[in-house]
């Protein structure tokens, strides 16, 4: 059992990277527009499905399929921001309803286009290498490398470019950013587009590892949400939380049943959130002082 520990942990790290990409998208959408995007899972699935369709029906190579799928979803999201979400940004309740509607539509469209079947996306790189005495698919390392590249690119974009600065400013204080002359409309469109594109990217990257199925977005949605709120809605926090959650669940699954491993991981994350958000510790301390 314990011999598999390094392997599980390492595999968890890889998943942490993929989750980070998706959660990052969720985070910037929430940060700039206060939209709790419950359609994010469907965007992930749509990305994977489009990637599959481009690769198999149009015979494009993996990278081109990925690029196209991500681009399509990104553009679609940018347009959706303008025509659906625009007037309601900042209002959590209202935009939640819009996202629910979007999720319903996307899911059914995915069923119509892709059907109920399950399919495996062919990895661009095949074969295994020996890692810690265990055969490890090379693609997973490629996926990890890709994820690191994209996360770094996003970091650079958000922290080293003026557009990224505008996005972060909007995340921090929307009204103040508008007051400073930032074109909020354009930023919003860009952010939703990028957020959706990141979800789709995560879907395509994951699709050779897991399968493509029209309901595949359900799991990643919950995990992304957990990671976003444990990260206290900050970008760095989300990534750190992803690195806490994925290896934790993978390692726990060595010792307990997989469902229980997931439940325990969820419970731990929940406790962290509640303690931090309700300032439980300081409130208990205050009670003690009284």
């Amino acid at each position: 059992m314990l011999e598999s520990l390094p392997f599980s942990f390492f595999n968890g790290l890889i998943w942490a990277l993929i989750i980070s990409i998706v959660a990052l998208g969720l985070s910037i959408i929430f940060g700039t527009m206060r939209v709790v995007n419950v359609a994010h899972g469907e965007l992930y699935a749509t990305g994977a499905i489009l990637g599959f369709i481009f690769a198999v029906d149009y015979n494009l190579n993996f990278w081109l399929s990925m690029a196209l799928a991500v681009a399509v979803v990104g553009v679609m999201c940018a347009i959706l921001e303008k025509i659906v979400y625009r007037e309601y940004e900042g209002k959590v309740r209202t935009t939640l309803i819009l996202s629910i509607g979007l999720a319903l539509i996307l899911q059914q469209v995915a069923l119509i286009i892709f059907g109920g079947e399950v399919a495996l996306m062919k990895a661009p790189v095949e074969g295994y290498i020996l890692l810690m005495g265990q055969a490890f698919p090379i693609y997973r390392l490629v996926a990890a490398a890709m994820s690191i590249c994209f996360l770094t690119a996003m970091w650079y974009f958000l922290f080293r470019t003026s557009v990224g600065l505008s996005i972060r400013a909007t995340m921090q204080d929307r009204d103040m950013a508008a007051g400073l002359g930032i074109n909020i409309d354009r930023i919003s469109m860009l952010t939703f587009g990028i957020g959706g594109a990141l979800a789709a990217l995560g879907g395509v990257i994951a699709s050779p590892i897991i399968s493509v199925h029209y309901l595949m977005g359900a799991d990643i949605l919950t995990i992304s949400f957990i990671v976003v709120i444990v990260g206290q809605l900050s970008l760095k926090g989300a990534i750190m939380a992803a690195f806490l959650f994925a290896p934790l669940e993978n390692v726990l699954a060595l010792f307990v049943q997989p469902i229980i491993a997931r439940v325990i991981s969820f419970v731990i994350m929940c406790i962290i959130v509640v303690i931090r958000q309700t300032n439980l510790v300081s409130r208990i301390r205050k009670e003690r002082i009284k």
Partner: peptide
């Protein structure tokens, strides 16, 4: 696990 489809970590060493 029935939801997540990454089976590998659950088989290694088992």
């Amino acid at each position: 696990p029935a939801g997540t489809a990454d089976v590998l970590p659950y088989l290694v060493g088992k």
